[in-house]
């Protein structure tokens, strides 16, 4: 049985099912991270003293990671644009680069975490670190999820390109929307945790 508007656009809404579904999912993600940011504000305003992020965290590493993630968003767009132009080989290169950059981000994050643990700084140490580990941990889960999705489209999922290129391009675009969202969350996290 065929579900209508899986890859063709419904004329009166101008959208495919997948795109609406993805935007709705992102709306719920905004509420998830929004609630955590709100909790951060409430706890911080109620605290008698609160450390500045750069006294505890490593700003240069995080700056590097910010650049990594923004670059990965660019390569993600390039991957999708390659498909729009019909060039599957370029798609593979850019998608591979996106996954690789995500991996670099996680590796840097691993070093940051282990450095903190080495210094005896744990989530239980104080509420600044509690919110730092919770927010960045949840974000890392999202990065890993986005990488898994991208890896699927880079590898086995790419078979769809041969049978239904329009649908495949759409799905890569949706994956890209999610990836940009993950990037955007980091762009909020970086100043909130490291600089303020």
């Amino acid at each position: 049985m065929e579900i209508p508007y899986t890859f063709e656009v419904r004329r009166d809404t101008g959208l495919t099912n997948g795109k609406i579904g993805l935007w709705l999912f992102l709306a719920s993600e905004v509420m998830l991270f929004g609630a955590l940011f709100a909790s951060y504000i409430l706890i911080r305003t109620g605290a008698p003293n609160w450390p500045r992020g750069d006294t505890i965290l490593n700003v240069p590493l995080a700056t590097f990671n910010t650049i990594v993630l923004i670059s990965s968003s660019v390569t993600m767009v390039m991957a999708w644009a390659s498909l729009v132009r019909g060039s599957f080989a370029t798609f593979r290169i850019y998608m591979g680069a996106t996954i690789l950059l995500g991996f670099v981000f996680l590796v840097v994050k691993y070093f940051e975490y282990s450095h903190k643990f080495h210094d005896g700084l744990y989530p239980s140490t104080n509420n600044f670190l509690a919110i730092y580990f919770t927010l960045t941990g949840l974000h890392m889960l999202h990065v890993a999820g986005g990488m898994a999705l991208n890896a699927w489209f880079w590898g086995p999922g790419a078979k769809l390109w041969k049978t239904n290129p329009v649908w495949f391009t759409n799905r890569v675009e949706h994956s890209g929307l999610f990836w940009h969202f993950v990037d955007l969350v980091w762009i909020f996290l970086f100043p909130t945790l490291y600089l303020l």
Binding site: S28, E29, M31, L32, F33, G34, A35, L36, S39, Y122, P123, S124, N127, A130, F133, T134, L138
Partner: peptide, 18 residues
């Protein structure tokens, strides 16, 4: 999702000692 956020934080409080 806000309850999910709250559940994650309560889990952290219980498991990670935050």
């Amino acid at each position: 999702p806000p309850l999910q956020a709250a559940a994650i934080m309560q889990m952290m409080d219980r498991v990670a000692g935050t």
